[in-house]
Amino acid sequence: MFSLKKIGAIVIGSILIAIGINFFVVPLGILDGGIIGVALIINYVFDIKIGLIMLLCSIPIFVLAWFYNRELLYISVSGLLLSSYVIDFMEPYQYYFSYYIEWTPFTRAVVGGLAIGTGIGVMLRQHVSTGGMDLIAEYLSEHIKINVGIIVLVIDLLIISIGEWILPGDSFFLSLMTITAGGLATSLCTLRRSENS
Rank of each mutant, 00 (worst) to 15 (best):
Ile30Val: 15
Ile136Val: 15
Val152Gln: 11
Gly33Ala: 02
Met90Lys: 01
Leu16Met: 12
Lys6Gln: 15
Ile59Ser: 08
Thr186Tyr: 07
Met177Phe: 14
Leu82Gln: 09
Leu174Arg: 01
Phe67Arg: 05
His143Lys: 12
Ser3Asn: 13
Phe62Asn: 02
Leu176Gly: 04
Ile162Leu: 14
Pro168His: 07
Ile162Tyr: 11
Leu140Met: 15
Ile53Met: 07
His143Ile: 11
Leu4Phe: 14
Leu28Trp: 05
Ile155Gly: 09
Trp66Tyr: 09
Ser187Val: 10
Gly79Leu: 04
Leu188Gln: 12
Asn147Cys: 01
Gly51Lys: 03
Ala65Ser: 14
Ile150Ser: 01
Ser58Glu: 09
Ile160His: 00
Tyr44Cys: 04
Ser3Phe: 04
Phe89Thr: 02
Val110Tyr: 00
Ala18Lys: 05
Leu64His: 01
Asn196Phe: 07
Ser83Pro: 09
Leu124Cys: 06
Ile120Leu: 12
Tyr85Ser: 14
Pro105Ile: 09
Phe172Arg: 04
Ser83Lys: 03
Leu158Ala: 13
Ala109Tyr: 11
Ile61Asp: 07
Pro105His: 03
Leu191Met: 13
Val148Pro: 10
Leu72Phe: 10
Gly34His: 01
Leu4His: 10
Thr180Arg: 03
Ile17Lys: 00
Ile87Thr: 15
Leu31Asp: 03
Phe172Gln: 06
Phe172Gly: 05
